[in-house]
Simulated assay, not measured.
Amino acid sequence: MKKQSITEIKALLNEDNLTPEKWEALLQDERKGVQTLLKSYHRKKEREKRLIQRFEEMRHYENKAYQNGFEWIAGVDEVGRGPLAGPVVAAAVILPKDFRLIGLDDSKKLKEEVREEYSTYIKEHAICYHISFIENQIIDGINIYEATKQAMYEALAGLTTPPDHVLVDALHLPNLNCSQEAIIKGDASSISIAAASVLAKVARDQFMKELDKKYPGYGFDKNMGYGTKAHLKGLEEYGATPYHRTSFAPVKTLGK
Rank of each mutant, 00 (worst) to 15 (best):
R81E: 00
I139N: 00
D221P: 03
H130W: 11
T7V: 13
L27M: 15
T120S: 13
R115V: 11
S189Y: 06
I94E: 07
H244N: 06
H60A: 14
Y121F: 15
Q180K: 00
Y238H: 14
K123I: 10
D140C: 08
G225K: 00
C178T: 10
R245T: 06
V251W: 05
N175H: 15
E116N: 12
G219P: 07
Q150S: 01
G69K: 07
K209I: 12
G69P: 01
G234E: 06
P163K: 07
A195M: 11
E57G: 05
Y243S: 11
D98H: 13
A188Q: 08
K2Q: 15
P96M: 15
K97F: 06
V202G: 05
L26N: 06
F220G: 03
L159D: 02
D77N: 04
M152Q: 02
S179M: 14
G239S: 03
D98M: 08
R100E: 13
P216H: 11
P250Q: 09
A155F: 06
K2R: 15
K214R: 15
E146V: 04
T7R: 15
G80W: 04
L232T: 07
K108D: 03
S192M: 01
F70K: 06
F99M: 04
D29S: 08
M224Q: 08
R100F: 10
I131A: 02
D169V: 06
L37V: 04
Y238M: 11
Q206S: 13
K214L: 13
V88T: 08
I127N: 08
K256G: 09
G217Y: 12
R245W: 10
I6F: 11
A155V: 04
F220V: 05
M1L: 15
E237F: 14
Q67A: 15
L84K: 03
K149G: 02
H172V: 09
P216T: 11
R245S: 07
